[in-house]
Amino acid sequence: MSEQGLVLEFPLQGANFESAGEASSKIKRVLQQIGVRADIIRRVAIGSYEAEMNVIIHAYRGVIKAAIYPDRTEIAVEDEGPGIADIQLAMREGYSTAPDYIREMGFGAGMGLPNMTRCSDEFDIQSTVGVGTNIRMIFQHS
């Protein structure tokens, strides 16, 4: 028998800064309606928002999925984009390939991936140069 969970899925469009964060906002609201603990929701929202921003900043398009179970929330973000050549380097705080106009918006400081690992209980990243990047985060509810 498959595990019962609530699945939310939102398409993401690269360079669409106007609506950047909408998907994470909706995920956050559903978690609030379900009654997940506020400090857990905050961590999910931050991890999800950072991953969403990464797609908007770096990729052409992508999808963000939230699977909400009684004991945990899983966030999966898959994009079509340039991919990451050196993941270890990209994981380092302060390292970023974002251009200056992204920094002027308050992002591209090289904190996105480190933030995601900090917020989540499990973090996994797979990337292929010229194809795209997949990120998976798990947040335990207790």
Binding site: F17, G21, A45, G106
Partner: peptide
């Protein structure tokens, strides 16, 4: 306290409570 006035500032406040 910030000098930025774009929508990302509001989103950041929303996500970070």
């Amino acid at each position: 306290l910030t000098g930025l006035t774009n929508v990302q500032v509001i989103r950041t406040a929303e996500m970070g409570d």
